[in-house]
Amino acid sequence: MIKLNINNKDYELDIDPNMPLLWALRDVIGLVGTKYGCGVAQCGACVVHLNGEAVRSCVTKVSRAAGQSVVTIEGLSPNHDHPLQQAWLELDVSQCGYCQAGQIMSAAVLLKENKNPTDRDIELAMEGNICRCGTYLRIRKAIHLAAAIQNKD
């Protein structure tokens, strides 16, 4: 049995501790907001927060998360009103939308650690998140906007 705390909810899973967190979330728990994109930590679609860090759940064994706090896109904010989610909607960032949960989860760690990120900071934080539709400019703008929203609150 592996005990997980996901989005402030406790789970006990009877699964192989080597199963990547991604598949435990998606196939076992049914939280499908976290996406599979590459399986080798290259694309960032699977980013979740593990104790506040933007880990790639596709290579993170569920055993690493045992007893720790995991936050997925579904739990980033109670009402989908995290400054990043607000900014994403305000600037209508998404095209296909598949990568955006991972983008937002990566950006959330950036904003937590740097209240006023520069373009360069955004590049450094986000370079691991691929968007095949090419919404990078809007993501950059949205992170700036989210920082402004966050600082105002």
Binding site: V40, A41, A54, R64, A107, L110, A125, G128
Partner: peptide, 22 residues
């Protein structure tokens, strides 16, 4: 590393299985 790009976000305590994995 920095922000969302810290080494341990991908590089686990042990090798990840497969080719081309961290």
């Amino acid at each position: 590393g920095v922000y969302a790009m810290k080494c341990a976000n991908c590089h686990q305590a042990t090798n990840s299985p497969g080719v081309g994995t961290p």
